[in-house]
Design a protein around this nucleic acid. Structure first.
Lengths: 219, 219, 219, 219
DNA sequence: AATGAATGAGAGTTCATTCAT
DNA sequence: AATGAATGAACTCTCATTCAT
């Protein structure tokens, strides 16, 4: 694994379309992210957002027809970025070429998503809170993640199973175990203990090793 | 590990104090759980709750001074039950007597909390959604869980480390890995794939084995 | 003027019919007086009264059909007592017999109403605040005061005018000046400066002298 | 005393700052004054005010955060105007220059406050009814009236006592007698007998003479 | 593009009153 | 006589949204 993942970082630039936005619009989005993530969507008021953004109440509705549209404009692009690492065409080739073993692959994903979470934490928080309450979000998520990520992830898992690097087990179960562990790492880092001292390199090592041994083909 | 954990199941009966409640009050609580878990606290209206409960809106406020008090009356007792398995005095003794090895201990906890989640799923969902937005909830949670559960859990981890059954590693890190994996199981079962076919025994086995191998002392 | 006004004190006993009242009813009335006088009728709630009285909410309505009826049951009897000094039949005879001069008459009235106000201050306060908002109260007041008190008062004024003790002036105007001055004394004593030091005898003297000189036939 | 009191009338123009107000806001205030004075603050509903003002109920709360703020916005400025005649710096100079004798001074004050009451009667009524129930109002009133008016009034009283025009007596007592008589005049005119025939000039004469003789140095 | 006054539906909450116990 | 759970209308206040400027 190289230090920088060119194909990853490139993808992250997608949808960073805060161009074309007026000054005020950017401020609205920033304020909305802050307030939504602090109080939840339903618990936030557009007037509070307007105030924090320093714009008139009406201005919000000039750019977004409804409050919900504002939410979606924030959360939807994040989803695209979330799955970016998997949105590459020749996934198997990349596996073969760049990741001779599981560990390197897992480490790449982990480090990369850790950075992603660090950068987009508030939006991810909003997303996770709102997804149960908004059908569109859920649908969109299913379409992208289920179809794209899961498919690629299963492919990777089977790839490494075939190479005998990890134990034979239904891909969904392996996926669940790996994802739980990595997401648990992210949640611990950013939600539960955001301020505590934390030797990140060591915790990543623990995590990767845990998965590696947990999935190692039994003797 | 016996099939039934007497000291566990017993504790679970605690706080089931829905006695003294009027008929209507019970209906209010039931309706509130349903609606809160469906739309979130801020997204639910007391009038909707009243309607679903079949009572006048004023009746809600006869029993709960505010909407928030209603929320807390639902969520707070659940927290007590959540940590019940750890709220036992002679925890180490129980470890020694009932759980000669980690696997049995993990399996007991997993099965037990799986049942708990099955039973209290809607309230747990409410709890998880609201905890970021309500300081009181967060405080109460920290007081009970952090103090009680973590302490006991760390004790158990060190206990099994000393017996050489699991790898040496800071207890919080071990805890994170174990908890992530088990909670991942619960979330997959009840949130992500509630309707899908699911061979529970097998998934539990995968999960326990994953943890066991993941934490096994390296050769 | 004798120290005690027998015909006055006797009348004051009228309507002290707190007999027949149950224990709880008395407590209700006491609580109502306190709360009404503190927050006004419209600003007080029956539940607060019930609480302060130590009875159930329903109990109030067992004794008084409505909140307003409770108010009237408190205020109406006070009105009767208020005008008691004038509710005597042979008023002129009493004037002739007991009060050879204005000063004695004024002093008797002043001292007597001062005592009355001291005793019934909270109820008087309620009465004064509510009279503009309740037609019945106003009607009842007009009937008793206008018809009874004014008539008697004018008679007394004319009586002393004929005796040359006070200046010729339309009785209503004289009445206004006298009443203003005495009521001003009461308000100052009980409303504006209830806690301040106050040489009552001296203030009464000032007041009576002010009226006497103010109404003295001009040289 | 000249017919017009330039320094008085000028001051009365203060605070007539109904500029900057929207059309609707003015209507709200007008409706509020009417309804508050008719039913009292606690007895009035914002919906009724909105209806009478011909605006949506929400509009009230766009301009006034709470119902109480609406009340204060009506009553507070009136207090300033109420004490305007005394809010002049060189009060003693004015006394010397413009009022060679008490009578002229009293007449000026009386006539002026009579006009004030005529103009602001509904607001004064609201004020008098609400002052016992709102601490802020009471505090503000004490600060302005007690400090400003009383100080000036006592100064005037002592001024005329020194000139031998009125009897020696503690200033507060004199003040009480004068104020009672004048306020009695206002109340009679506007509250008790608003519709009756009333020879105002004559009643003012009676009143002034009553005070003059009542306070004349005894022979 | 931006404003902010205005809206009216609906929010949470209070309240006088009723009624079964 | 007394209770207190229940009611539903009314209350104050909030909110997303509209629209004239």
């Amino acid at each position: 694994m190289s230090d920088i993942e060119p194909w990853l970082t490139e993808l992250l630039r997608l949808n960073d379309e805060e161009e074309k936005m007026t000054d005020k619009q950017i401020k609205i989005v920033q304020a909305a992210v802050e307030i939504f993530s602090e109080k939840g969507f339903a618990g936030s008021s557009t007037s509070e957002i307007a105030q924090k953004a320093g714009v008139a109440e009406g201005t919000i509705f000039r750019h977004y027809k409804t409050k919900k549209e504002l939410l979606l404009s924030i959360v939807a692009p994040m989803m695209t970025k979330l799955i970016a690492p998997f949105a590459v065409k020749d996934f198997t080739k990349i596996l073969e070429a760049d990741y001779p073993n599981v560990e390197q692959f897992l480490r790449a994903i982990t480090v990369n998503r850790l950075e992603f979470a660090r950068k987009h934490f508030p939006v991810i928080k909003i997303f996770m809170h709102e997804i149960p309450f908004h059908t569109e979000l859920r649908e969109q998520f299913k379409e992208t993640v289920a179809v794209l990520v899961l498919e690629k992830a299963y492919k990777a898992i089977r790839h490494f199973q075939e190479k005998g690097q990890i134990i034979e087990m239904p891909a969904p179960s392996s996926m669940r175990l790996i994802a739980s562990t990595i997401i648990g790492l992210l949640i611990t880092r950013f939600l539960l203990a955001p301020d505590s001292e934390w030797d990140e390199a060591k915790e990543i090592d623990y995590t990767i090793n845990f998965i590696m041994y947990g999935l190692s083909p039994r003797a």
